[in-house]
Design a protein around this nucleic acid. Structure first.
Lengths: 131, 131
DNA sequence: AAAAGTGCACTATATGATATAGTGCACTTA
DNA sequence: TAAGTGCACTATATCATATAGTGCACTTTT
């Protein structure tokens, strides 16, 4: 379910993008399905339509959703693949974060243990990665 | 060495904070040592003194540096311990990032391998965590 | 054909964060 | 005494973010 934290330091349009990405990944928004309209989502979340549009435009630019003028916006077929590919590219963030923590004196053991627990914990509860 | 990327999306004052933290951790700025003065650092980096002051104020708030009015700013004794403690608290970021990647379909194996490589790579080149 | 809903492109406005510029003062050190 | 220090001001400019409102071409539904 899409939720906006009005007091978050993260901009609303970014929260919206991440929320939609998440809903696509967990299947709330299936590939090919129609997304809420700008006005509908605007009313649901009490967010300005322009802000919704900004989020949709960014997702379109990345090929994750598609718009049919006059009809609506739809989750692109292959959206999950795109998100998967993008996530793989983000492994560099993981490397950077681990190095930062190492530099500050956090033990490699604690770091790896945390990573393993987070990854396995996800698999245990969610049933692993489906494709 | 402190360096500012004028074109980074990260604010100058944040880059400065992280740069100073890093220099404290690697020993460029030893505990008890005097930091560059506001005006000196301002001239060195071509950054407004007010911006330097903002970074110093934040580091003071966290107990990492101390100021002696009229004398200068100094790295606090125990600064490394504070940074270490703060870093340990950031393991939650690692958990969040790993879960995000899992959700997007990156395999637990790839994630853990990346974390191990980053942590070990650090230890090999830097000689492990010193205290 | 008409009505309603859709994306989308505008303009205008407000706010907060960021950064620069400049001045001044109390304090410490040489 | 002079120079250097932190620090507190004010003012200004810019950019990102967000809201508000209007309008239009398009599609779908009635």
């Amino acid at each position: 379910m899409l939720l906006i934290d009005k007091f978050s330091s993260k901009p609303v349009y970014e929260q919206l993008i991440e929320g939609i990405e998440r809903d696509i990944l967990i299947g709330t928004f299936a590939e090919g399905a129609q997304l809420p309209s700008l006005r509908e989502l605007s009313a649901m979340l009490s967010v300005n339509p322009n802000t919704i549009q900004k989020s949709y435009a960014e997702l379109m630019r990345r090929g994750i959703i598609q718009s049919a003028h006059g009809s609506g916006c739809y989750v692109a077929v292959g959206a999950k693949d795109i998100l998967r590919r993008e996530a793989a590219g983000r492994l560099g963030e993981l490397t950077a974060l681990v190095r930062e923590l190492c530099l500050a004196g956090v033990s490699a053991q604690d770091i790896v243990a945390t990573a393993v627990e987070a990854a396995n914990g996800y698999n245990e509860h969610e049933g692993g990665n489906r494709q």
